[in-house]
Amino acid sequence: MTVALVPVAAPVEPRRKSKIPGLNLLRTTHGLQRAMLLIGFVLVALFVLVGLFAPLLAPYGFAELFSGQLPMSGTHPLGTTVGGYDVLSRIIWGCRTAVEVILLAIVLSTAIGVPLGLISGYVGGPLDRVLVLIMDALYAFPSLLLAIVVSITISGGQAGVVGGILSAAISITVIFIPQYFRVVRNATIQVKVEPYVEAAKVVGASPLRIMFGHVLANVSQSIPVLTTLNASESILTLASLGFLGFGIEPTSAAEWGYDLNKAMSDVANGIWWTGVFPGLAIVLIVTGVTLIGESLNDVLNPLLRTRGGTTTADEQEIAAIVTVTPGAAAAAPAAPNAEGQAS
């Protein structure tokens, strides 16, 4: 007996995905949003490229000393500092430090914060309550202060080449872990009651497999947004650590916050080039990352929520945009309904 198999209509492919990263994101934006995103991309790309090619671009080494304070000239386009460093070279090498620290901080904090959030949300019970209490305590505390204390503990004041960057990254990591924890935990609590999780349990999948196979895939969409938002914060924290003297030593890497600290006393002598240029570098890179982060946040409609079912300002903004412009509405992927989550 032959049965004519009627081919089931394949689900319509929603949208052609481009292979170039960021292009999909760009396509979903329009007007002002797109301009902001583009400016952000250009700024960040610039800093990453400068960081990558720092040895070729910088006229001198970041720890190369010259005789005293020199004004801007042909040999030193942005002058030198009181300590005798070439300002332009320090800025260029500083890009490398900034990019390295951001990457390390984000990798470390996701590697710790995400599993903790998953386990806490999935297992629940007393473990969850204790972890939430600890993370909330750390989250509410002034983050810079926490980073300073950790930085002192790790480096003990003297940081080597790798140690300087690593300890700065770990100090920043500590303040981000509670953020990843909160986002992932809240999303996990929502997702773990879904039928497919029940199904996986019935099939006999181990809790670890359910957590990292089934649940993680469904909560991970909130992570990239948080990552970009954190990237800008990590630069500011790195610079603040450097400014207060708890950051990377000037001989082990170029760091803008340290340079700004040294430039503070130059103000009285009317020397502006030692402070203004590293400061502008910080402002530009943070602006670039923030622009990308805000656009991502607007477009992806994340599960980035505070506890207790309240939503973030940006989600509200999306809601506003979605109701105003139908173009953006199509772009927003359907996120699981996050209302009524447990707090």
Partner: peptide
Amino acid sequence: ILFYAAPVFFVAL
């Protein structure tokens, strides 16, 4: 955004 991006000590400077 610029004021968020500018560290306090740079604004101070």
